[in-house]
Amino acid sequence: MSHAVTDTEHKPYQQHHFENMEQQTQSTLLGIWLFMAQEILFFGGLFAAYTIYRILYPAAWAAGASTQNVFLGMVNTIVLIGSSVSIVMAVHSARHDDRKAILKWFAVTLLLGSVFFGIKAIEYGTKWDHQLVPGLNWNNEHALHTIQEHAPKNVEILELPKGIQIYYSLYFVMTGMHALHMVIGFGLAFWIMAKTARGRFNAEYYPHIEYFGLYWHFVDIVWIFLFPLLYLV
């Protein structure tokens, strides 16, 4: 059996099926990144659908994007990138075994995430008020009126562009899936903050914090692509 020939130093957090901590760390890092690869392909499916329909219905895409609030979208982008920085700082604090700083940076991350949710709620609420939610309260007349309001001055829109409901469906599904990932992230963050407060991590061992960072950065990257594709057409 392996324990007869491995070194006597056996960390309490080393699992039995690994020879040493280095192998464990490399294996878990590999595993987490393979999960990231899956997530890329997961969102990739939505982006592929987006691509096809955008090619098919450029007028609908231009019309739909014109009704988006670019300023709020930009603020959300800045807020999410900021929350990525705060998570990087949390991982940095973990490397220096600064428990208070870890909790502080996690709190900052969740605060910025809440700002993101707040702005998203305002955006979704506005769309609901204008009856732009396909399948739930879509109204052709109101939609046309809203699009005409937001159209550039020299453009006159006489009828609803074909595919306009597909644009809004993709908007809600893609940002909704993204928001769901953020909600899951919040849950994970609370769990990790509890573990941190109980002193489960030290300067050598903080995988949960490191890998949560990776997850949160991924959520940020998805938004980095969603913003120009949905708002800046």
Binding site: Q26, L29, L30, W33, L34, M36, A37, I40, L41, I81, S84, V85, I87, V88, V91, E210, G213, L214, H217, F218, D220, I221, I224
Partner: peptide
């Protein structure tokens, strides 16, 4: 974000391979 924030810069090269492979 991937190279700096996600620490691919400090990770084993296999991770960079997985990132490129995913895309």
């Amino acid at each position: 974000v991937i190279y700096f924030f996600m620490h691919v810069r400090e990770s084993p090269k296999i991770i960079a391979l997985i990132v490129v492979g995913s895309f």
